[in-house]
C-alpha cells in the first residue's frame, strides 16, 4: 500500500476536526481577551504571533524532526529544554504538553512502526509528556513533511485555532477571521526559510512574548473560561 501524500498528512494535521483535543484550546486568544486586549487588536495580534510565538513552536518541531532523523534520541532532551526555556509560563507548557499527549495518541495509532514516533513514545514514557511541537516534529520526521511546510503548518494551526476560538468568544462574520489567518500566514512567510533552516536546539527562535505568558498564567487561575489556554 502506498503512503498518503505528505500534503494530505499536512492537511490532516491542520484540520480542526483532527481528534487530538485541540478544540478545547484557543492558542492564547482567550487569555489575551480576558487580559484586556481589545477585539479590534486581534488581526494585529495574529500577525504578531505568527512572527514570534508561533515560530518558537515551529522551530522546535523542525529541530525535533532533524534530531530524530539522525536517530539521535538523546538529542530530544535538549530540544525539550530549549523549548521550555523559550516558554517560561507553566500554564503554557502544561497546555502544550496536554496537546502533545493528544498528538501522541494519534501519532502512535497512525504511524506505530516509524522510528521517530517510537522514539517520542519511549521518551514520553520515561520522562513525561512531550509538548505538541516536539510530537509534531516526530510526525514530520515519520512522514517526510519538509521543514518549511512544518513551519507553515505550525503557523497556520496556531492562527486558525485562535480564529475559531474568536468566533465563539466574540461572534462576527466568520469570513473576517479567515482573512486574518491568511494575513498572519503571509506575515510569517519571510521568516519560513530562517526557521526551516534550524538544526540545533540553540537555533530555535527565542521570540516568545512575555505579555502572552503573563496572560496565560492569569487565565489558568480563573474559574470562568471556555478554553484550556
Amino acid at each position: 500500500m502506498t503512503s498518503a501524500h505528505v500534503l494530505s498528512v499536512a492537511m490532516l494535521l491542520a484540520d480542526a476536526r483532527l481528534p487530538s483535543g485541540g478544540h478545547a484550546h484557543s492558542a492564547s486568544l482567550e487569555p489575551a481577551l480576558l487580559g484586556g486586549m481589545p477585539v479590534a487588536a486581534v488581526p494585529a495580534w495574529l500577525v504578531g504571533r505568527a512572527t514570534t510565538a508561533s515560530l518558537v513552536e515551529a522551530g522546535t518541531a523542525v529541530v525535533t524532526a532533524r534530531v530524530l532523523a539522525m536517530a539521535d534520541d538523546s538529542g530530544l532532551a535538549g530540544v525539550v529544554g530549549a523549548w521550555a526555556a523559550r516558554t517560561p509560563a507553566p500554564a503554557l507548557r502544561d497546555a502544550a504538553r496536554l496537546l502533545g499527549r493528544g498528538y501522541l495518541r494519534l501519532a502512535r495509532a497512525l504511524w506505530p512502526e516509524m522510528p521517530a514516533v517510537r522514539a517520542v513514545v519511549a521518551h514520553a514514557a520515561a520522562h513525561g509528556p512531550l509538548p505538541r511541537a516536539v510530537v509534531l516534529g516526530a510526525v514530520a520526521a515519520a512522514t517526510g513533511l519538509p521543514p518549511a511546510d512544518t513551519v507553515r503548518l505550525t503557523v497556520y494551526d496556531d492562527a486558525q485555532t485562535a480564529a475559531a476560538a474568536l468566533l465563539k468568544l466574540e461572534p462576527l462574520d466568520p469570513v473576517a477571521p479567515a482573512r486574518w489567518v491568511l494575513d498572519a500566514c503571509a506575515a510569517a512567510e519571510p521568516h519560513v526559510p530562517r526557521v526551516a533552516a534550524c538544526i540545533t536546539p540553540e537555533e530555535i527562535p527565542a521570540s516568545g512574548s512575555p505579555q502572552t505568558e503573563g496572560w496565560a498564567q492569569a487565565h489558568a487561575l480563573l474559574s470562568q473560561r471556555l478554553f484550556r489556554a
Partner: peptide, 9 residues
Amino acid sequence: RDDVTANLL
C-alpha cells in the same frame, strides 16, 4: 462524542 481526547487523558 467526536473528540474525546481531553476526557480520555
